Amino acid sequence: MKKKNIISLSIALAFLFLSVTGLLLYFGLKPEFVTSIHVLLGLVFIGFAFFHIKNNWPSLKVYTKDRKEGGIKKEFLVAAAVVGIFLLGAGFSLPPFGEIQHFGEDLTRGGGGKGGRMEKASFDKIITNKDKQGKTIQLIIEKSNEVITPVITIWTNDTAGNFIDNLFVPAKTIEVTSGEADKRHALYEGETETNSFTPAMSPGWQAATKDTATNYAEATPTDNFFLTTKTKAGDTFQLMLEIKDNGKTELYKALVDRTKSNAVALKAANGALLVRAVAELE
């Protein structure tokens, strides 16, 4: 067996699998085994590439240096310039490199641009108030692209504005590690920390509620979600939702009348954080 053949074939196979796992990572598909394969084969690729360069060093010198004039060839300067531009562009997230870098994740996770928004396909399913008595409500919460680590609370008031009960109050919050400029990328990379929810994080709910106990053990999902819950409210009441993200807070509400309709849409004045919040009543 020829060592050169083994090295060349190993590099080719490693490159093939690195390409596949690289594309999966680019489009935001990051299960642990994909990351592990990509990292380990990357090390294999580096190792065999070292021997490949060593075996072909004379040829590389020919590509780099002009034998007649003794100077560096233009081809090498062009190649070095191209690599340098990509290093600087990617390192400092300069346009269009930053946009290209996150295009795959934005595409698969619904982060479309102004020209045409891609709908987020991922919806978490959540159940609260499971052991409580009351009538079932199902809510569909779809967040806008700008929302990254939201804090959401949902509750009911009577028609006079008096608190009835909580439908969704998270026990935790997710925050991007301080110092991260690109919060969406940091979230996808898992560069976050989990903290306890405090009523002050949802001032509208805090002012209205008479029950500050949480009823969901985790943080508000970073994806869209379906919520199945129960309320002791009667046939007519106010459905309230407060969302806070990146220093911006919005209050959504709807007047529910079971005798007229079994579905309502929650609205907010100049609301931008939610694409839709719809409740279906049973």
Score class of each variant (00 low, 15 high):
N162S: 15
R258V: 08
Q138S: 07
T198C: 06
V169P: 10
E218K: 08
P150Y: 14
E191L: 15
S144L: 08
K260V: 11
N262V: 10
P150E: 13
T177N: 00
A186E: 14
A269W: 01
E146C: 04
S202I: 06
G161A: 15
A186I: 14
D223Q: 07
A171P: 11
T229R: 02
K232I: 02
K244T: 12
N195M: 08
A200S: 13
S144Y: 10
A207T: 10
G190C: 15
H185S: 14
G204R: 12
L251D: 05
L239G: 02
T159L: 15
S178P: 06
N145A: 10
T198H: 11
G247D: 13
A217C: 01
V169Y: 14
K135C: 00
I137C: 03
K232C: 00
D257R: 12
T212D: 02
A181Y: 04
L227K: 00
A207Y: 10
E242T: 06
T231W: 03
T228M: 04
K230S: 03
N270L: 02
V147G: 06
T177A: 00
A208W: 09
F168L: 13
D165N: 13
E250K: 08
Q133V: 00
I127F: 00
A219R: 05
K244E: 12
V176C: 05
I154H: 14
A213S: 05
T222K: 04
D124N: 07
I127C: 00
N195C: 09
V264T: 04
I140S: 04
F225G: 00
R258S: 08
N270K: 05
K125P: 00
N195Y: 13
T173E: 15
E146V: 13
L266M: 06
A213G: 01
K260Q: 14
P170K: 14
M240N: 09
